[in-house]
Computed example of a mutant assay.
Amino acid sequence: MRRILYIFLSFFLWSEAMAQLVPYRIFTKEGEEVAFEAISTAASNHEVILFGELHNNSMVHWFQLQLLKNLIDVNVNLILGGEFFETDDQLNIDEWFSGKITDKSFEAEAKLWKNYKQDYRPLMMFAMGRDVPFVATNIPRKYASAVSREGMDILDTFSEEAKRYIAPLPIVVDKELPGYAAMANMMHGSSMEPDHMIEAQAIKDATMAHSILKNLPSEGLFLHINGAYHSNDYEGIAWYLRHYDPEIKVMTITAVEQEDIQSLDEASFHKADFIILLPVDSPKSY
């Protein structure tokens, strides 16, 4: 009898230890746990997927690559796009994808994020190998920086050539949106002008939404990679997509970290259609 109890207890403790080693969990917005495949299945009913990432979390980037692979198998007209390239890099990307310039030339001329090679290049290489176009969606940083200093009106002073890389002006900004309002509260006491910082965030969100809509495939799907704060709570890019096209079908994914991933904290419910829950000590690229 003691031996049976010992075996049972050992198995129970082993099971508990293994449960702690699960590297991720996925939940719906209501907190129901689902398999990764549920994301790919749900995607087929939408036109745009906004995959909100934690920029330095390597597990999130692995998920993005797996989702891309799954979607390629079921979507003939698939387009990949991302915040991590600015709209004025599109020519470089097109020349690289078409084989007109080398990897070395592309990486020398494009504005690469510091974790590009580890986290984003695998996505680009896989898309290139499967003839999936890539769209650079983010506003050139110099214009967003100008807005953060001077406010949205500064954009009117730029040339028509410059405005080609920005969402059409004027840009509607709802500063009462919870995400933007929280940004203003965080800046209380800062030397920066909160309204200008909100406008800088909004011009990024609006430009990414405009870039997506401008390149939306017919009878297809646009998978967009962006920081989670650009689409959490269906704000940011998601808000501008609906602003420009109220009928558009958008699905959102976000990633959150917790010390304990046995269940999703209620604070993360409804952040997105699907929430990928990761341990705080999951691998980081920087």
Score class of each variant (00 low, 15 high):
Met1Ser: 15
Arg2Pro: 06
Arg3Phe: 12
Leu5Ala: 11
Leu5Tyr: 15
Phe11Thr: 11
Trp14Ile: 11
Glu16Trp: 03
Met18Trp: 04
Gln20Arg: 11
Gln20Gly: 07
Phe27Leu: 11
Gly31Tyr: 11
Ala35Trp: 04
Ala38Cys: 03
Ser44Trp: 01
Asn45Arg: 11
Asn45Gln: 11
Val48Ala: 01
Leu50Asn: 00
Glu53Cys: 10
Asn56Met: 08
Met59Trp: 08
Trp62Arg: 12
Leu67Met: 08
Leu68His: 06
Asn70Gln: 14
Asp73Ile: 05
Asn75Ala: 03
Leu78Thr: 11
Leu80Trp: 04
Glu83Gly: 05
Asp89Ala: 13
Glu95Trp: 12
Trp96Glu: 00
Ser98Phe: 06
Asp103Lys: 10
Lys104Arg: 15
Phe106Asn: 05
Glu109Arg: 07
Trp113Cys: 03
Tyr120Glu: 03
Pro122Cys: 04
Leu123Lys: 02
Met124Pro: 01
Arg130Lys: 13
Val132Thr: 02
Val135Trp: 05
Ile139Asp: 02
Arg141Pro: 02
Ser145Met: 10
Ala146Gln: 12
Ser148Lys: 09
Arg149Glu: 15
Glu150His: 15
Met152Arg: 02
Leu155Ile: 07
Asp156Gly: 04
Ile171Gly: 01
Val173His: 07
Asp174Arg: 12
Asp174Glu: 14
Glu176Lys: 15
Leu177Glu: 13
Pro178Glu: 05
Gly179Trp: 03
Gly179Lys: 08
Gly189Leu: 09
Glu193Gly: 01
Glu199Pro: 00
Ile203Asp: 00
Asp205Phe: 01
Ser211Thr: 04
Ile212Leu: 06
Asn215Gly: 10
Asn215Val: 11
Asn215Pro: 13
Phe222His: 11
Leu223Tyr: 14
Asn226Thr: 10
Gly227Lys: 09
Gly227Ile: 09
Tyr229Met: 10
Tyr229Leu: 08
Asp233Ala: 14
Glu247Cys: 03
Lys249Ala: 12
Ala255His: 14
Gln258Lys: 02
Asp265Glu: 14
Asp265Trp: 00
Phe269Leu: 15
Asp273Ser: 04
Ile276Tyr: 04
Leu278Asp: 01
Asp281Val: 03
Ser285Ala: 10
